[in-house]
Design a protein around this nucleic acid. Structure first.
Length: 436
RNA sequence: UCCCCGAUAGCUCAAUGGUAGAGCAUCCGGCUGUUAACCGGAGGGUUGUAAGUUCGAGUCUUACUCGGGGAGCCA
């Protein structure tokens, strides 16, 4: 409340045409001088223009308008009027303009900036039109994830962030002092997710994960968010159906609710819309490998994992995400179940996004047999004592089960059509960068 | 860890080995429909650091520092 006025979000101004409202926000840009100012005001939900004519407002308020600099915070009381010249269809005719907090020499200007400068000023960069749009899409993705699982009786059961041991090797782990011993920041909640699934049947965990990979590419962060559903009695096919329902639901929600932001981002919707429809194409590793070889790619070695250019090729071969299954067991994790028809193959599935955005999902049916799993733990020379609790899950009512992990930032990058993951998380953590 | 590229005004970038410049931002002035508004003026520099070549280095060489892109690994 301010002087008897209730603040209205810019996003909802079109419901208040003809009314006098209170706006609270920051000055995005100012044009004009002399007897007329155009103030572009943002409040996080949108941007609206206030037209300040000298003869239509108190002299004191006109002077205030003249003093406003980029990113000064302000309150405006004014009338909402329709105007075809305004980009949003409405503009404000202010009767009062009040400066709340001055802004001097705001560093991010209207012209271009380089990535280093923008990342050094990430706390201010977030105020830019494109960054706000990405954050709103990210918010829609997070909400869609929660809704999707809630509606399907998956309980959110989060995994710990401090872990005593590695789940897939130790070289990529961040170690931290945990009182008198060493702990690691989680790189996946999956093993705990499996335990939770044996309790609640269908679960997901959702939180930040950490990988100390020395990767300096636009596809990597050292801290990123991952959502990992895990379900008892799910086989590989169930996992794949869940994955395509899930991703198509998220894309559909963003298309439905964040159309304006996608427009701000200049996203080509014709390339995104097919991903809102199922089914998704499903191919075996063998077939994907054949496609690569037939394409004349000489860098791909059959039997080995796909590199980034190979993922790009496979992703670009379809109009929506493609799922690749039945991988050589040698290149996949120890906990994946082997194919009954061919024990050389693992029942894993990766989902690759189109347009070169790469892998967004990695999942699998898990090995539920105690003996086979113990054998793998020994083969991979994993610390057996650390996996005692995990093996317990196979001792007490083991069932077929499976799940997957979806990288939130990669998904947001793909949906937004943004090249670099650093723009898809509020404060990116990368190799050699932890400020601000 | 490896490969490639870069570092010049607050920001983005120019400058054949020969007087260091523009746009934006800032400050001053003009404009009642601007859309990264426009027009006129002003201030603003140890060219990342250190050494070397040269009559002369922002420019050439070497090392270092920082950053960007990519490989590997992965979501």
């Amino acid at each position: 409340m301010f002087q008897g006025h209730r603040a209205v979000s810019i996003r909802h101004l079109n419901k208040h045409v003809g009314e006098e409202v209170l706006l609270q926000g920051w000055l995005y840009n100012k044009r004009g001088k002399g007897k007329l100012y155009f103030l572009q005001i943002r409040d996080g939900t949108g941007i609206v223009q206030a037209v300040v004519a000298k003869d239509a407002i108190a002299e004191e308020d006109f002077e205030t308008a003249g003093q406003l600099t980029q990113e000064s915070s302000l309150r405006v009381i004014g009338k909402v009027v329709e105007d075809k010249r305004a980009p949003s269809g409405v503009e404000i005719q202010p009767s009062r303009i009040l400066l709340v907090g001055k802004s001097q020499n705001y560093p991010i200007t209207k012209k271009e900036h380089g990535p280093n400068f923008l990342l050094e000023n990430r706390h201010l960069w977030l105020r830019s039109r494109k960054q706000m749009a990405i954050m709103r899409v990210r918010d829609e993705v997070l909400k869609a994830i929660r809704d999707f699982f809630y509606d399907r009786d998956f309980a959110c059961v989060d995994s710990p962030i401090f872990t005593p041991n590695a789940c897939e090797g130790t070289t990529n782990l961040f170690g931290v002092k945990y009182f008198d011993e060493m702990a690691y920041l989680t790189q996946s909640g999956q093993l705990y997710g499996e335990a939770s699934a044996m309790a609640l049947g269908k679960i997901y965990c959702f939180g930040p994960t950490f990988r100390a990979e020395k990767s300096k590419t636009r596809r990597h962060l050292t801290e990123f968010w991952m959502v990992e559903p895990e379900a008892a009695f799910y086989d590989l096919e169930d996992v794949m159906l869940l994955a395509e329902d899930f991703v198509s639901y998220i894309v559909g929600r963003v298309l439905e609710h964040r159309h304006e932001d996608l427009e701000t981002l200049g996203r080509d919707l014709t390339k995104l819309e097919p991903a809102a429809q199922t089914p998704y194409p499903k191919i075996r590793y063998e077939e994907a490998a054949r496609m690569l070889v037939e394409s004349g790619d000489e860098t791909f070695v059959p039997g080995e994992d796909f590199g980034a250019p190979h993922e790009t090729f496979l992703g670009n071969s379809f109009d929506r995400p493609v799922m690749v299954t039945h991988w050589p067991a040698a290149i996949k994790a120890f906990y994946m179940k082997r194919d009954a028809a061919n024990p050389e193959l693992a029942l894993g599935v990766d989902m690759i996004a189109p347009e070169g955005f790469g892998e967004i999902i990695g999942g699998a049916q898990r090995e539920e047999d105690l003996g086979l799993l113990e054998e793998r733990v020994r083969e991979e020379k994993l610390p057996e004592e650390a996996f005692r609790w995990y093996l317990d899950l196979r001792r007490f009512g083991s069932v077929p089960h499976g799940g997957f992990g979806l990288g939130v930032e990669r998904t947001v990058a793909w949906i937004c059509g943004v090249e670099h993951l650093r723009e898809c998380i509020p404060f990116p953590r990368m190799l050699y960068r932890i400020y601000p």
